[in-house]
Design a protein around this nucleic acid. Structure first.
Lengths: 357, 357
DNA sequence: GTGGTTCACTAAATCGATTTAGTAACAGAC
DNA sequence: GTCTGTTACTAAATCGATTTAGTGAACCAC
């Protein structure tokens, strides 16, 4: 980048201003002069310095994304890579890039947002893993950083949201299980501080209530495999053990399925299982996992587009709700065990202790 | 960021230069003046504009990472999230951030690197998925962009490399299988254009040769699940069917295990399987997957550190080889099937057709 | 007391673009 | 011929920091 606008200007025999006008397609230079300028620019291999443009225009030409996740858990979530790819799909059409920050330690999150805001490193951020009572809303407002949230937080937020109707997916899963004859359908939820953890639980409750079934078979976990194991153990140790478990993500479902199998249960003969995410590996489990396929790629694309629109003032301020995810039926769900149809506790059930995994 | 250095200067009653000297700890301002300046800066909440600093210093204060992967495949690789977290671990101690770009379409890769280089968006890049004959080396040299490569490419490269000794992991896996009595040990490799695809195959070959075993049971795949299925199908259809398969990653191993199981083979009684990556879900497969655990977090940390060192001129230019990965023994590997010990083709083997997955 | 040196600080240049204000040339109207 | 208006362009200001050159003042040496 040794070549600057001055080089082009003197090479073309015009002023710097003329080069700028020519490059940006503004009026004020004649046609043949403009062409001559563009030609010499191309010959010299000149690209305007983003740094100079940034300073002059007070824009960073970058969006920010902060991922708050423990380092060793990061690799297990199929959401982020696909989501980021979606964001990139939108950004590559614009002069924007994505600045990624990972907050691995608790408490580092705020520091990350400050780092992005302080020097003016990004023009706006996308908030993922939105929490019910999300302190970041106030933080960003204080920092004066535009944003888009994935899901609408419970606290009043001035930022538009791109929402995924994950309730529809859970509803479909529960209805599928009900149609198979299940009546004791449990839910292993993600951390309930998250909107998506909470909404999935709500959807499970609503679907059960609508069918006149009880909603007490809930176990909260944290979207991790060990958490899924622990929650599954708790559920299966109950006297009124469920015949089906709806998990809030594939990783917990995988871990839960493994736990059930190592404790003598057959999936799906004794226990039906559904996941959420449609992770690649889910298809290749034994049995393959029935799960819910959302579209993180589209989510990322839309979130980036909405943030860009907000930045150049063309966004109307409204939220966007993406199409519902679809239920992917595989081998981990099946008819309710015959002996379990009369929903009486005890009976033929073998006891499963919660000790050990 | 409405407050600038001029605001601080006039508020403290000094010149802009004095503020700059004070902030950066340079000599030229008296002690009490310096303190007064720093105090007013804090009061006003001033942080120097990164944009101005960038222009002045001709630095971007950012590193770049280009991921070339089809969008839908991105979510399945546990490497990148952990690697990126490692990079961040290093960057958060410096005034640097990570700019991430995803090249989803073939051919978009070069465009991504140009986008990062052209405006001076990053000061250097980390090259992942290094290929045997990697055209990016020449490209980056042309663009004048400093870099660090993960693995050393076969073409002469002026860039230092951080290497993972993945050969050691594969060797350990093969030796483990040999100790279990296996003699027909196959390898499902990743695309051989990649250094890591190639080196894993080489390690498998060497370990077999060292034990006096044949190295013809190789099937090339592409690190994807469908690719793993296809390769597995080819191997299992052979008359001298292997009793163990060493896969180049967990996803292919998972898919291969699933394929074998759905075609009537018992893992590990009939077929032992090893993966590579130690993905979270691998522990929860049925049976759990024996695999090789590398440390992508450390890899990212070191790669970023090396690139930063290179940028400020403190790097000695030498490569760095990370400690060897470790073999994680789980249920997918076991003793060779008794009837398979005399390695005679045909016999009791059932035939497995390659049709269908 | 003159010359030299250090110290603390200011004024101004600089990075590379965009943008504003200004100017020269020319055309058309009257 | 003068006035107005448009066109095509240049010169200079600007963004916000760093850095260089320069300026008084104090201090020391001889």
């Amino acid at each position: 980048m040794a070549v600057t606008i001055s080089d082009v200007a003197s090479a073309a025999g015009v002023s710097k201003g003329a080069v700028s006008l020519a490059l940006n397609g503004h009026a004020g230079v004649g046609d043949q002069t403009r062409q001559r300028i563009l030609d010499t620019a191309k010959t010299l291999g000149w690209t305007p310095s983003l740094r100079a443009k940034s300073l002059r225009s007070a824009k960073a030409y970058a969006l920010g994304l902060v991922i708050a996740r423990e380092a060793k858990l990061l690799g297990s979530d199929p959401f982020f890579p696909a989501f980021i790819a979606g964001v990139e799909t939108t950004l590559e059409k614009h002069e924007y890039t994505l600045v990624l920050t990972v907050a691995t330690e608790p408490g580092a999150e705020e520091r990350c947002y400050r780092k992005l805001a302080d020097g003016g490193r990004v023009d706006g951020v996308i908030l993922t893993d939105v929490r019910h009572d999300d302190s970041r809303i106030a933080l960003l407002r204080r920092l004066g950083l535009p944003a888009v949230t994935l899901s609408r937080p419970a606290v009043p937020s001035p930022f538009p949201a791109v929402c995924m109707d994950d309730a529809a997916g859970i509803t479909a899963a529960v209805e599928h299980l009900i149609s198979l004859g299940h009546t004791r359908i449990a839910h292993v939820g993600g951390a309930q501080v998250y909107i998506h953890g909470r909404s999935r639980r709500r959807a499970w409750e609503s679907a059960l209530s609508a069918a006149g079934l009880a909603t007490d078979l809930f176990a909260e976990a944290d979207f991790t495999a060990p958490g899924g194991v622990a929650a599954t153990a708790r559920l299966l140790a109950r006297k009124d053990r469920p015949t089906a478990i709806v998990y809030a993500n594939d990783l917990m479902a995988t871990a839960g399925q493994s736990y059930a199998q190592t404790h003598g249960l057959n999936v799906p003969a004794d226990l039906s299982i559904t996941g959420y995410d449609n992770a690649q590996f889910a298809r290749y489990l034994n049995p393959p996992l029935t799960t819910i396929a959302a579209d993180p790629l589209a989510w990322g694309r839309q979130a980036a587009a909405m943030l860009l629109a907000q930045l150049d003032g063309t966004h109307d301020g409204g939220d966007l709700v993406l199409g519902p995810p679809r239920l992917v039926l595989r081998g981990s769900t099946g008819a309710v065990p015959p002996h379990a149809v009369p929903a009486v506790a005890g009976g033929r059930y073998q006891h499963i202790s919660t000790a050990g995994t």
